[in-house]
Amino acid sequence: MIEVRFFAMLKKLSGTGARQYEVSEPITVLELKQLLKEDMPALSEVLDSRSVLVSVNEEFARDDELVADGDVVGLLPPFSGG
């Protein structure tokens, strides 16, 4: 199971704080984004805009990195701390 967490405006857009996905084998971050877009069309535009960063197990991850069973993925909209 891959857990995907949503923050800030993405939490509002997706209507949830987290969602879990069953995968039979590791998939890339890009493939996970595609899966998310199919599952939650409301996220399509923002995921395509590339303004959203992705973390895997609390480290920033590129589109070609692999995500596997047990990983926690964060969808991170533009930061505005400070």
Partner: peptide, 27 residues
């Protein structure tokens, strides 16, 4: 450090205005 915090730390700000709450996307 403050510039780096704004760039790399997953913290998000929502501003409450007269017309509602708005997530800030650029700082």
């Amino acid at each position: 450090a403050i510039t780096e915090l704004k760039r790399t730390t997953p913290i998000w700000k929502s501003e409450t205005t007269a017309t509602g709450d708005v997530w800030v996307t650029d700082t």
